[in-house]
Design a binder for these strands. Sequence first.
DNA 1: GTGCTTTTTGCGGGAACCCGCAGCTTTTTT
DNA 2: AAAAAAGCTGCGGGTTCCCGCAAAAAGCAC
Lengths: 253, 253
Amino acid sequence: MKILLIEDDPVHRSFLKEMVTSAMPECQQLWEATQGAEGEQLAREHHIASVVMDLQMPQKTGIEAAKVIWRERPETAILFWSNYADEAYVRGISRIVPHDAAYGYILKTASEEHLQLALRSLFIEQQCVIDREVRGVQQQAQDRHFGLNDLEYEVLQDIALGLTDRMIAQRRNLSLRSVQNRLQQLYEKLHVHEHDHEQTANQMFNLRTRAVHIAMLRKLLNSTALQQAEVELAKWRQQRQAAALNAAPPIHK
Amino acid sequence: MKILLIEDDPVHRSFLKEMVTSAMPECQQLWEATQGAEGEQLAREHHIASVVMDLQMPQKTGIEAAKVIWRERPETAILFWSNYADEAYVRGISRIVPHDAAYGYILKTASEEHLQLALRSLFIEQQCVIDREVRGVQQQAQDRHFGLNDLEYEVLQDIALGLTDRMIAQRRNLSLRSVQNRLQQLYEKLHVHEHDHEQTANQMFNLRTRAVHIAMLRKLLNSTALQQAEVELAKWRQQRQAAALNAAPPIHK
DNA sequence: GTGCTTTTTGCGGGAACCCGCAGCTTTTTT
DNA sequence: AAAAAAGCTGCGGGTTCCCGCAAAAAGCAC
């Protein structure tokens, strides 16, 4: 039995190592990686079936690393060990987990027993182990009236990136008006208008930026999610520009 | 000699304790607090002159706790031990440190020797110890052309909160146009216009939200800074409303 | 004081945003 | 198949935002 740890913080890494060796005596080989790319590499080379990783890492996010690992070996069991239960992370993970894979999500605040139990359940019984708190977020996100659906979440990201309505329309293949509709729904669900009705015609908030801010407070967005969204935006911009060049007839005039 | 540790994460706390006891044998009493308020309390009761604290904590930020402690006993030496060197934190600290107090800022990624040396220098020699990286941020923040000055930083926060131009003007006692001037400078410094000049009249970005996003990427803002800004905004709203009520003549009609 | 820079303010207009209304298409329900 | 729900689209207009231009106002040298 082989296990791989991916964790950048040395303090946490040594703690993790301690936990794993004591909870899993049947583990014969234990690898450690200090960042995502290195972890992918090790998993690939040694055909590792059990991974524990941190979600927050510089360079390559845990989510990105997990995506790569699962693409190559979808049966890998991955335990995410994270500081936060932000909706951005939870969403990110549910988006990439293969539907027959076993995985777990444990908060770093969990007790040692809890962590060790999770390790055994997941790696030996192949049973999913999701922290209570995370479950809560997962469900809340699916609530029809409280949570945002994928489309709303998409525009939320887009405006958080700073895109214009017109650009969003272009990117998502929609009309301008449709984008604005989505935005209205978003504003509705985030209760952007709270306390704002005060007598005066004075609007207190710019809805667009206020929505982003509220989303940050509610942990619907976080900075790593935005960083990732930014690189996807860059990709899109690139291919759009390429398409524009091809479409444009050779200019002679 | 008495030392107080304020750190919420148990793993880091035990590590810190280890470091302190080995680096400071002259330390006779060592207190530990798991959150800001508790730390303030202990510092007050026991007249502690040397504190080590984490910056990122739930409930009460390290910065808020430090503010309180320094207000009561400005000669206290405080070592901030933090995961990040975000400009938001650095700014926050320089804003509150008494001008004759000794303090330090060490990143959690620093080596054990580094940390121990810092502890001795600060608590025994009363000498400020600032991490290289943090220094870098500090200087960059003061650069006339790259960094934001306080006024620009202020509007940045305000738009990040989602305020309207008009509201910002009201809050900061400025004319509408002045606010917009500040915003223009801000956009300039953040290079919001990059690559945007492409031939078409199509603006790619909404400058306001784009600026916020870029600021997040550059760590000029972070979520805890915004949370704090939000409560200050709430305060202002409250007193503004109170003022409005007093100003309004008793309505009879 | 006179000059100089920096900051603040007003005016005006083009663009973007927010959104009610109404018609159209697609999906879901019955 | 008919009805209902949900989503997409265009139109129009009220508001806010972004910013160039230019004139006061404040700060700072000499």
